[in-house]
Design a binder for these strands. Sequence first.
DNA 1: CATATATGCAGGTATTTAACTGCATGTCAA
DNA 2: TTGACATGCAGTTAAATACCTGCATATATG
Lengths: 106, 106
Amino acid sequence: MDDDDVFKALADPSRRMLLDRLCEKNGQTLGQLCESMDMKRQSVTQHLGRLEQANLISTVRRGREKLHFINPVPLYEVYERWIRKFEEGRLSLLHDLKQQLERNKK
Amino acid sequence: MDDDDVFKALADPSRRMLLDRLCEKNGQTLGQLCESMDMKRQSVTQHLGRLEQANLISTVRRGREKLHFINPVPLYEVYERWIRKFEEGRLSLLHDLKQQLERNKK
DNA sequence: CATATATGCAGGTATTTAACTGCATGTCAA
DNA sequence: TTGACATGCAGTTAAATACCTGCATATATG
């Protein structure tokens, strides 16, 4: 898994919107997703492509339609590798600040 | 808090590297952070500016130095608003897939 | 004060990117 | 088979961005 692809995919509000829509109703077609997107279909396709590259969604063709499914795994990995790490012991921000300011007075 | 600033700040590998460095050792100066960054000081300043705008770091001046401190709060909020949401009930990806494929057969 | 050090600020530029348009392909249904 | 519908693909463009260079300002120290 490529952290960078995931972070870059999440960096765009339209793509987060798409994930939101899929979270409400999984397995939507491109056409359905376009309805809530205020941009051309081709642009939505591009965004979905980036989400798929980041493995945040998977797709299945059903006839002439393409169904999109959200994949929570990369998000969880990002959480594990990035967010939990900063939580632990980093609640000491104020303590660190105070410590540095003390050092200043010497 | 602006979700978008946080996501955009996290989208760049250099900025994630900076957060990593601050996680190892909080309260570093600009000069210290530059040592591990393989780019000009002014570029590092720009990155730190984006991190500060996203409220991911706070800064304090100590004489001619500027100290940088990591702030875990926005990361936790991103987790709460984005990641936990997708975890819950979204482990049913395979179930959803199967369901859609069944619908296909009709 | 004079010098060195730490950081700030103002552009310049090449790359990336997010939108668009136009046309092509594939699938269903009459 | 033919027409309608869902999606794919290629190329264009304007904006964002991640670097850079050059110079300015502020602080510590002799």
